[in-house]
Design a protein around this nucleic acid. Sequence first.
DNA 1: CGAAGGTTTGAACAACCTCAACCAATGTGG
DNA 2: CCACATTGGTTGAGGTTGTTCAAACCTTCG
Lengths: 261, 261
Amino acid sequence: MRLLDERQLARAPPFCRLDPHQLRRVRDLAQARNAAIGTVVFDEGQPALRFHLILSGHVRLVRMTAEGEQIIVLHVAAGQIFGLGAPLGRATRQETAITADDCQLLSWPTALWQVFSDDYASFAKETMRSLGARADEMSNRIVELSTKLVEQRIACALLRMIGQSGRKVAGGIEIGFPISRQNIADMTGTTLHTVSRVLSAWEKRGLILSTRCHVVVSDPHGMVMIASGAARPDQPATAARRSARKAASSIPYSAQASITV
Amino acid sequence: MRLLDERQLARAPPFCRLDPHQLRRVRDLAQARNAAIGTVVFDEGQPALRFHLILSGHVRLVRMTAEGEQIIVLHVAAGQIFGLGAPLGRATRQETAITADDCQLLSWPTALWQVFSDDYASFAKETMRSLGARADEMSNRIVELSTKLVEQRIACALLRMIGQSGRKVAGGIEIGFPISRQNIADMTGTTLHTVSRVLSAWEKRGLILSTRCHVVVSDPHGMVMIASGAARPDQPATAARRSARKAASSIPYSAQASITV
DNA sequence: CGAAGGTTTGAACAACCTCAACCAATGTGG
DNA sequence: CCACATTGGTTGAGGTTGTTCAAACCTTCG
């Protein structure tokens, strides 16, 4: 079991540069846990005592509003670290972490994050890289939510998921964990009704194949078209939504203002 | 000039624990720059060669879409660092940085980030903390964009700005830098027309005072009411928008699932 | 003073949410 | 193994929010 874990640990980006001896040390300090689908790993508001690594499976980071709505902020895939609140200066969890499928998890006390960072340069580097990637993803989500229509946002969400956790299957690329219409709605800021309508339409057009909690994208290119706002049936191919004020987009700012730094 | 910079530097969170000698070293490695309002500090797509600190003023981090729309991702206030793409593993800028008012800026080559982090523990800690705070802010924005009505989102944006850069004036709390309706629209994913209508209505109700590029919140508490979705004139005080499915929100997940970690 | 940028406001329309009802798949207990 | 509950999915009708279009106004600044 430990040996097995070590071998998987060696494939996780934050630890893949460590030698066998270092891996053993890291593994021995970890607490292992198998969590069935739907298990809550930690909950919004709790003290952030440990950080986690996914050996296999997927975890959703979720926030809930006072009105009882869920918003899926991020998906974390195998090989990745999550729950780094403490090193980022948060004493308590801001999100709830729920397994999206059956998971093997390791966790360490937050104090070890500093130790690992000091001892293994690649660990520090890799966690920073991962924080950066997530900041990018959130930033992209903000742009999408601000500018895109629901159909485009759903397309973006599917593309993001097949990019992060897609696996090739017969009819296309499948999202590698169970995902319901409600889940997709929670990612895109819409309702399951709208998601259902959109996916049904896409299935008729041959863009996807879908069964219960299960989506295969059979025409990724067509999906990109939809996500980008091209392939709009009626509209003239102009702005997807808000009036592209001035439309001076093509000239970067730098061409106008003197940039020095 | 250098001396003046050093004194201001000593007040910036990332450097406030340094002794005078260290401060001088940091200052001597920096490039100083005064940037008038509307100056582009760096542009989306450029290589990330330096990181920056605001001595005074405010900087907007902006992203543009293919259709020419701007989205304001974050505001950065005096004393804060920005442009940390490189340590986060990004070779090129993902956002454009534009000064929101007249700014005094310092910048350093990205290579020094590692050096400062190694040499000054408080610097490393503080930059992590700041990354965490921004991740929180983005996460909050995602929740707002996903669940709140336009009026609530605008209220949230105003509250966030007075929280970060508000100053007390005669009639209430003023946002500490110039801000147009269009800017607010770019923050909330709406149009300047809608922002204008909402602010006009608020001004009539005595919640704010506003002139060109200039907003004073005179009733912060009322603003919080609006932001949270209370104070809705017609609706019964239930869910602000999407149907609060199951509304099991009050019981934290942890009460249902065994949480161990 | 004219131009440019910011703001206001009305009217029409589109997107999408809400309500409502129903169906299909899966799981459960007798 | 079947009745039944549960969960996820589908689909139509109607209503609300907020965008789009259009036009005018005001302020600031060269």
